[in-house]
Design a protein around this nucleic acid. Structure first.
Lengths: 240, 240
DNA sequence: CGGATAGTTGAGCCTCGTCAAAAAGCGTGG
DNA sequence: CCACGCTTTTTGACGAGGCTCAACTATCCG
């Protein structure tokens, strides 16, 4: 649901445009594997480790190699908003490009590993890095907008469904089953992300379990009827 | 409210990093005025003109020179979400960088003018363009997140206040008064953006008028007590 | 084993959405 | 210039979805 990329033909364009014409993944993996070959500094994290905080001076982006992270925004008066859950292949710190300090917070939800990407260095040394970065940021913007659409037009249960299907899709894209989803985050964090209370998330999960569309076992969710679930967010629009 | 850039010292960094170290505006105006001097193609638009639609093949970004635009996302099943209102200095089409086709829609709310920015050309010819673009995209991401925070933690009236203050701030940044805001969009569009119904927007505006914090005259809003308004979104957190 | 964290479930209430009707603007053409 | 139709806005009444508060259970970790 989350990526509305037109899966169109990659145009045979002059080299500079090569990137912009790419639908999504192909050249991306090129750049990504280039980055991996560069022997950039790696960093191991444990559950609840904070990778960076708002206001902290920023030196690099982080590319997630393994594990799960949440990024969140904090307001002065204590409100918090989880802006996304990140997994392998995602970039952390995109939002603070152009700033000398981080604007959001990134916390590990599990043990994991990230690679530091010093943009200045990479911009100079890796041809196409800038393009890749811009394309990645654009994808982040589209994701954000999709979720804005979801939270403002879908009811509580529909949002939870969209969340589960999104996780499943992303897991599938990484080579996992997609039938089974292990939630690395608390109900409260899911609720925060979806603009719901944790009790509402619980109730939605319980209800979907009762009607047999998913099987909930603690944080392990088995998706039993993808078709029906998809129909529930595409069909009747919005609340009601 | 919307831009949480640290107004910190611009570090004396190696040239490549110059951009990333910039807090926000200074070098940006450099690039922007460079762009203006290039004699890039301009385009005049009328009220309700569509600059681009989802699926339409994309050739360039658009820099707003005058007028007001809304950008919105459309889902297959007809749901719509206004993703932002854009004015002078804003870029249209950022979200579809890396795609060959547009992912969202941009419509003029008034007569206006835009400049076409062909990224391939500019990336090659204007040094620092890529950096500027990345910084601009990052700012868009931060804005989006701020609004996600707002819509998920603030009550209806607070969201409307945040919206008015944001408009006022942006107008002030462009050299206008900031006391007076002319809404170029309908109540329905405001509501869509804020995840509210149009009736709720109307009620919020009416109420704020009654209590004397703003003066509503059709689409002309006069902000009478900025301090009190700011307190209402920073003070008591969220709903209730 | 015991304290803390996380999740579940219930009951009541409140904000905001829904439906409806009317007023006010606004553009258009006679 | 005014009449007409359309869009936009306002206001009211009502109901419901989800939030709040609260109690209880399960789980994790030292």
């Amino acid at each position: 649901m989350l990526d509305s990329n037109a899966p169109s033909a990659a145009l045979a364009a002059p080299h500079l445009d090569a990137w912009f014409a790419q639908p999504d993944g192909s050249t991306g993996e090129d750049i990504e594997s280039q980055l991996l070959r560069l022997g950039l500094p790696r960093k191991l994290v444990h559950r609840k480790d904070t990778l960076f905080r708002p206001g902290q001076s920023k030196s690099a982006l982080y590319l997630v190699r393994s594990g799960y992270f949440k990024t969140s925004l904090l307001s002065e008066d204590g409100r918090e908003k989880v802006t996304g859950f990140r997994m392998r292949g995602d970039l952390l710190g995109l939002d603070s490009i152009g700033l000398s300090h981080h604007a959001c917070e990134a916390v590990a939800l599990d043990v994991g590993e990230v690679i530091e990407l010093p943009h200045a260095l990479l911009s100079a040394r890796v041809p196409g890095f800038q393009m890749w970065l811009a394309a990645t940021m654009a994808r982040e913007i589209r994701r954000d907008w999709e979720w804005m659409l979801a939270t403002s037009t879908l009811g509580a249960e529909q949002r939870v469904i969209a969340f589960l299907l999104d996780l499943a899709d992303r897991q599938r894209a990484l080579g996992y089953s997609g039938e089974q989803v292990m939630l690395q985050m608390t109900r409260a964090e899911i609720g925060n992300f979806l603009a719901l209370q944790l009790e509402t998330v619980t109730r939605a999960l319980s209800h979907l379990d009762v009607v047999g569309l998913i099987a909930v076992d603690r944080r392990e969710i088995r998706i039993l009827d993808t078709g029906a679930l998809r129909a529930m967010i595409a069909g009747e629009r919005g609340l009601h």
